[in-house]
């Protein structure tokens, strides 16, 4: 029914398709640099965990103080939070790290000193909400994992770009 493409034409189109794919991967890398360059850096504090549980192969598992929030921070008055629902969490600096101020279903307007982080509800019950930010895994550079593993509380620097993309830029042990 349909005839195959002429060889020369196919060759050109394949070349184009492969070039576009390579550019796409480079674009993903560029998005990483752009998020740091134009993003605003905030600091998040991890919740104390058993340090032996922290290191999973080549990444550390991070639980933040804002990963589990009291129910009163849910700002949608007319309905309950649904599991898996995407949410916007408004953060404000307090005692050296950003803490949550409210959880919204749609993007809220904020003051200049506040920041918005996107996430997903993983669980909600009568008194609280559990939220996943996608920042729970930090792929550690070689050898750094053991160092992080010994500290119960970490400070995580997160860059949030104006277009909403976020990435971890550094993980530091809390200075004592």
């Amino acid at each position: 029914m349909a005839t195959p493409l002429p060889l020369a034409r196919r060759h050109r189109l394949v070349l184009l398709a492969v070039a576009v794919q390579a550019l796409f991967i480079i674009g993903v890398a560029a998005a990483g640099y752009a998020t740091t360059a134009w993003g605003r850096t905030i600091t998040l504090r991890t919740a104390p965990v058993d340090p032996r549980d922290l290191l999973y192969g080549d990444y550390v598992r991070l639980h933040y103080t804002i990963s589990q929030l009291p129910r009163r921070l849910w700002r949608e008055t007319n309905r309950e939070a649904r599991p898996n629902e995407p949410v916007y969490v408004v953060l404000q600096p307090a005692h050296g790290a950003y803490e949550a101020l409210g959880v919204y279903a749609s993007k809220p307007a904020i003051e200049p000193r506040q920041a918005v982080l996107r996430g997903w509800i993983t669980n909600s019950w009568r008194h609280g909400l559990r939220i996943r930010y996608g920042l729970e895994r930090y792929y550690v550079p070689e050898g750094e994992g053991r160092k992080l593993e010994k500290r119960p509380v970490l400070l995580v620097k997160v860059s949030i770009a104006p277009w909403g993309q976020a990435r971890i830029t550094a993980v530091n042990a809390l200075a004592k």
Partner: peptide
């Protein structure tokens, strides 16, 4: 490549 690059830069897929 897409997955590993975004992992390399700790990018979150929204």
């Amino acid at each position: 490549g897409i997955v590993l690059t975004s992992q390399m830069y700790q990018l979150i897929g929204y």
